[in-house]
Simulated scan of single mutants.
Amino acid sequence: MTERPEGAPAQPQPQPQDQPSASPSAPPPQTPTQAEIPAQPAQAQAPTQAAVPSAYPYPDPQSPAASPSPRPYGPQVAPVAAQANPYGYPPGGYPPGGYPPGGYPPGGYPPLGAPPATGAGGRAVLWALVGAAVASAAWAGGVFLLGKDETEADLRGYRAKSDICPSVDYSSFKNEYPEEDDAPVNNSLEHAALDQSYCSISLKESSTSTLSDAYFSVQIDLHKKTDPGPEFTAMWSEYDQRYEDYEVEKVDGFGDEAYVITEDTTSGDDTSGSRSATLAVRDGWMTYEMRWSAYGSSYDDVTMPDVDDVVDWLKNDTNATLDNLRGADGI
Rank of each mutant, 00 (worst) to 15 (best):
P100N: 02
N175S: 15
N324V: 15
T118H: 07
S167L: 11
L112W: 11
S197P: 01
S207P: 05
D300N: 03
V125K: 00
W236F: 15
P12F: 04
I220W: 00
P86H: 05
S272T: 05
D252T: 09
E238V: 06
A46T: 08
A214W: 04
N187E: 10
P9F: 13
Q241G: 04
E263W: 02
S217P: 02
M286G: 04
R291Q: 04
N319C: 01
E231F: 15
I220N: 00
G273D: 06
G296A: 10
Q83I: 03
Q19H: 09
A277W: 01
P111T: 05
P68V: 03
Q17N: 09
A137H: 07
T303I: 04
V125M: 05
P100A: 09
A183P: 01
Y243W: 05
D264P: 10
W292A: 04
G121L: 14
G97Y: 02
G147I: 08
E6M: 03
S25A: 13
G268F: 09
V307E: 02
S67Q: 14
C165G: 11
T118W: 06
T48M: 06
R291K: 08
P70F: 12
F173N: 00
K250D: 03
P116F: 08
E180Q: 15
G97D: 01
P110C: 05
L322Y: 02
A51L: 08
E190K: 12
R123T: 02
P228E: 06
T48K: 07
Q15R: 09
A26F: 09
P111G: 07
S293F: 08
D270H: 02
P16E: 13
